[in-house]
Computed example of a mutant assay.
Amino acid sequence: MGRTKNTTKARAESTLSIQDVRDLLIKIQENAQKQFDSDQNLLEDVSEEYEKLEGCLNKSKGPTRKALEAVLRSIGCDYRAWYQQLTGNQAQRLLRPENISKLLAVFPADCSDSLPLMDLVMNDLGRLMSCANNEFKSDEQIDEIQEIICRFEANLKEAQPLATVTPKLHLLCAHLVPFLKVNRSWGHVTEQGLESLHAVINSLIIRFASVRNVEKNAESILKHIGNFNFLYDLGESWFNNI
Rank of each mutant, 00 (worst) to 15 (best):
E13A: 12
I221V: 07
S38K: 09
R96M: 15
N58L: 09
S237E: 09
E48H: 13
R93W: 03
L16P: 13
I75G: 07
L128F: 09
D113W: 01
T87C: 06
T4N: 11
L68A: 09
D110E: 10
D20P: 06
F239C: 15
A218I: 11
D119W: 04
R65G: 06
K59E: 03
K5H: 13
H170F: 11
K181V: 04
R151Q: 07
L103D: 06
I201G: 00
L128I: 08
L57E: 12
S74H: 14
V177P: 07
L72F: 11
N241H: 15
H175E: 08
A10Q: 09
S17D: 04
I201L: 05
H198F: 01
K102Q: 03
W82Y: 11
Q90A: 05
N99D: 03
G187F: 11
G76S: 10
I205F: 12
D39H: 15
N134F: 01
C56F: 05
L234F: 15
L95S: 05
L72Y: 07
P63R: 10
Q92P: 05
A199P: 01
M1S: 13
P97F: 04
R80Q: 06
K52F: 04
N155L: 05
Q40H: 12
V214M: 09
S114G: 03
K181E: 12
E147M: 09
A81Q: 07
S114P: 03
K52C: 07
Y50T: 09
T190G: 09
Q160R: 14
Q192T: 11
Y232M: 11
M129A: 10
N31R: 12
Y50R: 13
V200P: 00
M1H: 10
D139L: 01
D23R: 15
Y83P: 00
E140C: 12
M118E: 04
T166V: 03
S112N: 11
A199V: 02
P108H: 04
N89S: 03
V46H: 06
S60Q: 02
T166K: 05
D143R: 11
S112Q: 12
N6A: 06
L169V: 12
A91H: 01
Q29I: 08
T15M: 01
D233M: 06
N229C: 07
L180A: 03
C77V: 05
L234G: 14
Y79Q: 00
R11F: 04
E51M: 15
A132Y: 10
F208R: 03
A154C: 02
E54R: 11
